Amino acid sequence: MEAEELKYLIVNRKENAPTMQSDLARKLVWVPHEVQSFCAAGIIAEEGDMLTVLLEEGGKKVKVTRDECQKMNPPKYHKVEDMSELICLNDASVLFNIKDRYFSDLIYVSKHIKPNFH
């Protein structure tokens, strides 16, 4: 592949910064959202199966059950080219990765060609 073509596939990891800059970054999860399907949130309190989270969008505090949350991948996996590399492979993480790559003008789906070993 030419260098020009690679800019649509490969991410510059030096420019890939975390979205939430705080001590909550270690406890990030995806929670259901009415408009966006899932929203990034930081866990601020735990009481049994209930979690109090701070939504990244708008900074609103919300209580959700632990089962409603999906684990979030560390920032180094944002815009990953091969989603099988994700540590947390769940609906929210796959959707986020596809949207993140799309809005960064990166190829977000790829058809792998099997090599011919004749």
Rank of each mutant, 00 (worst) to 15 (best):
S110Q: 15
Q21L: 11
L55G: 02
P32V: 04
Q70E: 14
P74V: 01
V64K: 08
N116V: 05
E46K: 15
L51T: 04
A3R: 15
K60G: 03
N73Q: 01
D91K: 11
E47P: 00
I10M: 02
R66S: 08
D49M: 06
I107M: 13
Y108P: 06
R101E: 06
H33F: 02
P18V: 00
S110H: 13
I113W: 02
Y8H: 15
E4V: 13
E47Y: 08
C69T: 12
N90E: 04
R13T: 13
A45L: 04
S110G: 14
W30E: 00
T65V: 04
V64W: 06
I98L: 12
S104P: 04
H78W: 11
P32T: 00
I10F: 06
H33M: 03
N116Q: 11
A17L: 13
N90S: 06
Y108A: 01
N12R: 09
L54N: 02
A3Q: 15
V62P: 04
V109T: 14
F117E: 10
P115Y: 06
V80K: 01
V94A: 00
K27P: 06
F38H: 10
V53D: 02
V11Q: 13
T52K: 05
G59A: 02
P115L: 03
G42M: 03
L6G: 10
F38K: 00
P18A: 05
Q21G: 04
V31A: 02
K111D: 13
K114F: 09
I107D: 14
I113M: 11
S110F: 07
Q36K: 15
S22V: 00
A3Y: 10
K14I: 03
E47D: 12
N12V: 06
G48I: 07
K14Q: 08
P75A: 08
I107G: 13
K114Y: 10
Q21C: 03
M20F: 02
Y102V: 08
K79H: 06
V62Q: 10
K114A: 10
I113N: 09
E81L: 14
L54P: 01
V64F: 02
E57I: 04
N73A: 01
A41N: 05
D91C: 07
T65S: 14
Y102E: 15
V35W: 08
